[in-house]
């Protein structure tokens, strides 16, 4: 569905070098700290910036050859851009009806009502949350096969996030081959929602794993200096110096639980893994 192979983009203070793949029917999460290169990657995929190297294919075609017709099958949410703030929801519906043959106006308006989005108010007068809801509802309103969502839940409260993610889940279940690439700084959203997750730091993909594996198999060992050297280090992935010794990220938590019952071994969430990958040292 979507593939990036060694995509490079050079800026004066930042270099992107990213590879990732979104397979048909998969929900792929893309996580990283602010400035890690998530939005640059999204812009590269959408051909909004020119890449300096590597290859991006969308629906099997080089991304530079994606036609307007192909774009009808892509739903997009950008964190820092959207429909003109001077338009209303009614205007957006009128525009989308002309642009997307599969646009379902009745469903779109119903969703807007459901999420309390006013029809006649200018978008620039919307709250951040309302704008975020409108962007996501619009992206799901025209039967897109691929959703490219950059921080779609940013600015939403917990309840609205839950509701919208449920809506997104329903949308994906309607047709099996629909795929999503989604970034979020709220790791909880991605943990519950994604089939696999890519982590990016300082412009580079540092980790790719199925979400289930990340949550079930990865763990953090908290060890002092002596324990650290005594442990089998085969499954160490990252380590971080602490006042007590080291925190170590492993992708074989059960191995250490079984063989080193005296060592403090904790389950790790995506945030812990990301923090370790950013602040720690790769082994």
């Amino acid at each position: 569905m979507l593939r990036l192979q060694s995509v490079r983009k050079h800026y004066d203070t930042f270099d992107l070098d990213c590879s990732l793949e979104v397979k048909p029917g998969m929900i792929t999460g893309f996580i990283g700290a602010n400035g890690a290169g998530k939005s640059t990657t999204f812009k590269a995929i959408l051909n909004l910036i020119r890449i300096d190297g590597g290859e991006i294919t969308v629906f099997g075609k080089p991304h530079t050859q994606i036609t307007a017709k192909d774009r009808e099958m892509i739903g997009v949410v950008l964190s820092d851009s959207g429909f003109s703030g001077y338009l209303t929801v009614n205007d957006v519906a009128a525009v989308m009806r002309q642009m997307y043959p599969l646009f379902d106006r009745a469903d779109f308006m119903e969703r807007c009502r459901q999420f309390g989005i006013p029809e006649k108010k200018k978008i620039k007068e919307f709250s951040t949350g309302m704008r975020a809801k409108l962007k996501l509802i619009a992206a799901m309103s025209h039967g897109a096969r691929l959703l490219v969502l950059d921080e779609p839940t940013s600015g939403l409260d917990v309840a609205a996030r839950e509701e919208l993610l449920a809506l997104l889940q329903d949308y994906l279940e309607e047709q099996e081959e629909r795929s999503v690439l989604i970034s979020s700084h709220i790791s909880g959203d991605l943990e519950k929602f994604c089939d696999d997750i890519y982590m990016i730091s300082d412009g580079k993909t540092i980790l790719h794993e199925e979400t289930g594996v990340l949550l079930d198999e990865y763990g953090i060992l908290k060890v002092d200096e002596t324990q650290y050297h005594a442990l089998d280090q085969t499954y160490f992935k990252w380590r971080r110096k602490e006042s007590f010794g080291y925190s170590v990220l492993t992708d074989q938590r059960s191995f250490y639980l079984e063989n080193y019952p005296d060592v403090v071994t904790e389950k790790s969430g995506i945030d812990d893994i990301l923090l370790m990958a950013i602040k720690g040292e790769r082994l």
């Binding site: 307007a68 017709k69 997009v76 959207g82 003109s84 703030g85 642009m99 490219v148």
Partner: peptide, 21 residues
């Protein structure tokens, strides 16, 4: 100018319209 407002171009060019279009 309306298209340019609040970085609107980025989103506009994700819609089914080519740059030439």
């Amino acid at each position: 100018a309306y298209d340019e407002f609040e970085n609107g171009y980025a989103f506009l060019f994700t819609l089914p319209v080519s740059r030439r279009g």
